[in-house]
Design a protein around this nucleic acid. Structure first.
Lengths: 316, 316
DNA sequence: TTGAAAGCGCTAACAG
DNA sequence: CTGTTAGCGCTTTCAA
């Protein structure tokens, strides 16, 4: 592979001149510029990216911390991020953690070792206190709200949407309302769900909260636990449309009508919810992702809230 | 930020010794090793990745060319790739093309400029002839079959699965069978679909082939075109479960029974298909992704076929 | 407008 | 076992 010296030699100029034409600097004579360009084309030369990054001290690439991909919510966020990255000619690295704190820290280290200019956190395993020291090495923006002034935030109004959803349920006459979440109280969304729930309905029996829900199968399991007990919830707020689907299918399989006997509402407006006419709250995650990227590239520490939309269909 | 010279100086050793402990080389006295490690910890030092990549001439990172993410098929492939990349401590860059040939070539260039050690192509816009020259600079593996000996392939047996699916439809007595595809004949999958179709049913009116189908909405559009004409297909093979869902919903909305009046079968075993009990052919794309990664890391040019599974549910 | 030269931060002969 | 030194391939003063 040819390098900049080869180009310089064959074009009969110095490496600085080659560098200048490479970077479109002014003050290069047309003559030399043409000569250099000819050799570049001839040798099909492109500058070594590591060398450029090393001296420029930036890589024009961002990392995206997510527990895993192939999940509607995270893929929507990633999609938004990719939209913008293409426009701005940045490159994005996917950093899957499975909520492993060590792994997550090792990814944050890529800021320190100058492999990444910035990191977008879609969901995290570590505490902010563990994360914030890394802001010294590059922009860190989160897809959730946090007070910390070091962290830019592009977030959906989770608390507001939960409040409104529970209120709708209450207004429809439901008082026995159960809900599902992905993780336990270590998760921000779970905390907000519980807080909003209590705000509207007051305390609840712990059996009304089903954790570890990610997939259709988890929804089935949740429904089994909820519907076979004497808890008799009349409504369930699922943490995603796939989970809602599992609940719906199980309910129907044992002859429970939706929404007559059981109201179901999911989240994120996924295809499966559209297919089954499930009501849902759309947190517009693609937009959140796009904004998160914008904040990162601007090294902004702003807190920007994206509005949610509640979509009422047949299941409530 | 401290660099290797700072560490060497403060530890009272040479940079080579620091480099040795960094890279776990043998033949470093316990004493010096400890001294170096102490300073490293003290200064919270990590080696600059660009410098290391520059001299090592490798980055331990792969790129994944895909038209876009947030699509069940590509996200499954990516998921498989990420699974393995975490295990092997590689990093992956997502390279979304929207099937733009220029963009795709610019990504392939990242092999040449040493930004990437290898690239996995999940779907492509360029011809192989345009792509193959880049194999000189790094491993390129595809998630589709190609004869070219320079390209490793981890692929699903598309042709076989299409053949079997059409045969099943034929065996069930269908002779008026329509189908949808994402792209036109520039796409490998589309070509194989048509070839398999003709193999089983012979030629077909061009109206039986609906293109540009990606989403539920596209499925609705396809169904409108197909069901309102006098073509009267009795079965439709959709190129994905979301498209199948759109077809299903539209059919139901105009009083057409599934499967009595219309058989529908989709692809990729997506959640929405599970929810609606749609039959599907699962190409096991997560496995394909995992294998593609393995081939890339081994710089293998093997052709490995992953078996498909036809999942019969209620729609056929 | 141009080139020489000094790095960027690291690895790996090579010599001791 | 350890240090010296020569790069890796590029950008950017600085002086001309």
């Amino acid at each position: 592979m040819a390098n900049i010296n080869d180009i310089a030699r064959r074009a009969g100029v110095s490496v600085s001149t080659v560098s200048r034409v490479l970077n479109h600097h002014p003050y290069v004579s047309q003559l030399k510029k043409a000569a250099v360009q000819r050799v570049i084309d001839e040798l099909d030369y492109v500058p070594n990216r590591s060398a450029v990054d090393l001296i420029r001290k930036e890589t024009r690439s961002f990392g995206v911390i997510m527990p895993y991909n192939n999940n509607q919510a995270f893929d929507q966020l990633l999609h938004g991020i990719l939209n913008r990255s293409v426009e701005r000619d940045y490159t994005v690295m996917v950093l899957p953690t499975k909520y492993n704190t060590e792994k997550e820290l090792s990814y944050l280290n890529k800021l320190k070792n100058k492999q990444l200019d910035g990191i977008i956190i879609t969901s995290r395993a570590n505490s902010w206190d563990a994360i914030i020291p890394f802001t010294k090495y590059g922009a860190i923006v989160a897809c959730e709200y946090t007070e910390h002034p070091e962290i830019g935030c592009a977030y959906m109004d989770r608390y507001g949407s939960y409040l409104e959803t529970f209120q709708i349920l209450k207004d429809k006459g439901h008082s026995h309302v159960a809900f599902t979440t992905a993780r336990g109280e270590e998760s921000n969304s779970t905390q907000l769900t519980i807080k909003a729930y209590q705000q509207i309905f007051g305390n609840f029996p712990p059996e009304y909260h089903i954790k570890d829900c990610y997939s259709i199968a988890d929804g089935v399991r949740a429904a089994q636990q909820l519907l076979q007990s004497e808890l008799n919830p009349t409504a369930i707020y699922a943490n995603g449309d796939e989970v809602a689907t599992g609940i719906y299918k199980y309910a129907r399989s044992i002859g429970i009508g939706v929404p007559e006997d059981l109201a179901i509402i999911g989240q994120e407006n996924q295809p499966v919810g559209i297919g089954l006419e499930l009501s849902t709250v759309d947190h517009q995650l693609v937009k959140v992702g796009e904004l998160a990227f914008d904040l990162t590239i601007e090294k902004s520490k702003e807190k920007v809230e994206i509005p949610y939309r509640i979509i009422l269909r047949q299941s409530i």
